[in-house]
Write a protein that binds this DNA or RNA. Structure first.
Lengths: 333, 333
DNA sequence: GTGAAAGCGCTAACAA
DNA sequence: TTGTTAGCGCTTTCAC
């Protein structure tokens, strides 16, 4: 409501120069005890708050972190944003959010704007496994960068994500225990690194467990892909189990299978991936791997702030193991 | 990568003063045709972009809009954020996102920070029907404000949200057509304006349609509330139908009812509210009212930008009618 | 129509 | 330890 109090006002009221007032408040310079006390008292009384814009112009640093996700509507990304925002907030950073809608051109444009806005760092879920690399390389080198959930190249910047190998092993071993011998995979295509990696991790886990691959369907991480895959799968001989690359895919899959007269888990077992809140509420509740969202966000923010503070450590690639959560989609048989 | 080009560079290269360069680029001052052309050409060639921070310091305006939601994890709010972000983006604004976690103290703190950051406007979903008013009143008067989805007082700022009366009427008339005579309501408590309004709208629609109220349960807009309500309702005599205040509540409700051996829609009809993507995938698919999210976001952004541009029009209160989407939760009986 | 200069609020180099 | 001064990049009087 009232006119903002400037450093000048504080200095005048405390009877010192603006420089001294600035130093007294920042604390990182030698200023006498009394002066510091006086300035702080006056500042508090006047309700002084530094103007972040003036500081940013002067310092070239904004204490703002930009985050770019492909679809905020995906509950997994929403949770990731939520967790990251909270972490950043605690460390005194604000979150500028952008949605790339999974499009590389939008991604580039948003990165550019973030650069112009002089964000201190960017947390990005690269939309394209290969094509995003160019966009990432184009950002100013003084902006810290961390890739989260998906990667556009391990050498580009720190990366934090789920350990897909652990995830697929957990899932396939569970399915094997439940008696499955043949299994189909419905995941995202190779455009996203997570789509690619999960498919590969699935294949490796398949070999280890000795299960038989019946069919693979690849699309996006959304429900529509699950729906379409259900149609494909329902036409052929059913496998014992279907491993979905995301909870959303599993939702679409189960829903459409049911419409086609295929019951889960009675006729076929289905697993999800992400551990979204709804996977427990869904009917049947989903057997899925729970992403360590808090851990991923915490690591990403730590890495990022480390970089912002000037860390020149080698690029890190951090994989966090998920946990298996068993639901009705593989049990009530 | 390269050093940013400043206006000074452009001016030098175009052989004019920085003042002229600034005027030529802004276009809102008298500058000769040739000069404008020359400056623009040089600026383009050099890849000049105004420094938003310097401009913000000078103008006191950032072209950033802050948005505060109670839970980004709620798919409805995620969609709202998505829609608003897109609208803003088109008009040249960035979106600074904050999550109040439904807590009034966090809300106030985030509002304060937004004020300090000199956002041009704020889109807020007030967390508390009454307590948020104080926080909203505390923000600097030169920051535009619009309330979305929930209100903390019609006089405080423009408001845009769904028309709850239309919604409840659509739902109850539909239930009546489906043969329901008694109905229960499970919604959010009076802390949020939407919780309060939906309960009231439900009551009014009840009177109009002549249905009998069996029971009311009030909590939050989340699945847990639905789960808890299911336990309460399953203990007593079941109504013909249950109207939920949100899709999430309906999900929790149906899921828990099923665990308790109550089938939807066979034993009881259930309706949702919001029209989230998952309501179509859920089993059974939900009969629900679809929020006009795009419309709400578009209006909110229009109002906000109007205010940012100085509109002193009387405070508006805009209600957008939802549409009914019929699903299996009230039909396959 | 154009340029010189002030100044938004802040921090840091340089003096004292 | 403290004050003076410059300047971050921009827009906008105020002269010419």
């Amino acid at each position: 409501m009232s006119q903002p109090v400037t450093l000048h006002d504080v200095a005048a009221a405390a009877d010192v120069s603006v420089a001294t007032a600035s130093r007294a408040l920042s604390g990182k310079n030698r200023v006498s005890r009394e002066t510091v006390a006086k300035v702080q008292a006056v500042a508090a009384e006047l309700g002084y708050r530094v103007d972040p814009i003036a500081r940013a112009l002067r310092e070239g640093s904004t204490r703002i972190v930009g985050m770019i996700v492909p679809v905020i509507g995906n509950p997994y990304f929403a949770q990731l944003v939520d967790a990251a925002e909270e972490q950043l907030q605690q460390r005194g950073f604000e979150l500028l959010l952008a949605d790339s809608h999974g499009r590389i051109d939008e991604e580039l444009r948003r990165l550019t704007v973030f650069g112009e806005r002089k964000v201190d760092g960017i947390i990005i879920v690269p939309s394209d496994h290969t094509a995003s690399a160019g966009a990432l390389r184009s950002i100013r080198s003084n902006i810290a960068l961390v890739q989260i959930d998906r990667s556009a190249g391990a050498s580009l910047a720190d990366f934090v994500g789920v350990d897909n190998d652990v995830a697929m092993t957990l899932l396939l071993e569970h399915l094997q225990e439940r008696g499955a011998r043949s299994v189909a995979f419905v995941g995202a295509d190779d455009v996203t690194s997570s789509g690619l990696e999960r498919a590969e991790a699935f294949r490796r886990a398949l070999e280890r467990t000795g299960l038989t691959l019946v069919r693979q369907v690849r699309g996006q991480f959304d429900t529509e892909t699950g729906v379409a895959a259900a149609d494909e799968l329902a036409d052929g001989p059913l496998p014992d189990a279907i491993v979905a690359g995301s909870d959303l895919i599993a939702f679409g899959l189960i829903s459409r299978l049911r419409e086609r007269g295929v019951a889960v888990p009675d006729d076929v077992l289905v697993t999800g991936f992400d551990g979204t809140a709804l996977s427990q509420i869904f009917t049947p509740s989903l057997t899925t791997v729970v992403q360590p969202i808090e851990g991923i966000a915490a690591d990403a923010v730590s890495f990022l702030i480390g970089r912002i503070e000037g860390s020149a450590a080698p690029v890190r690639n951090s994989r966090i193991a998920p946990t298996l959560r068993v639901g009705e989609s593989t049990t009530t048989r």
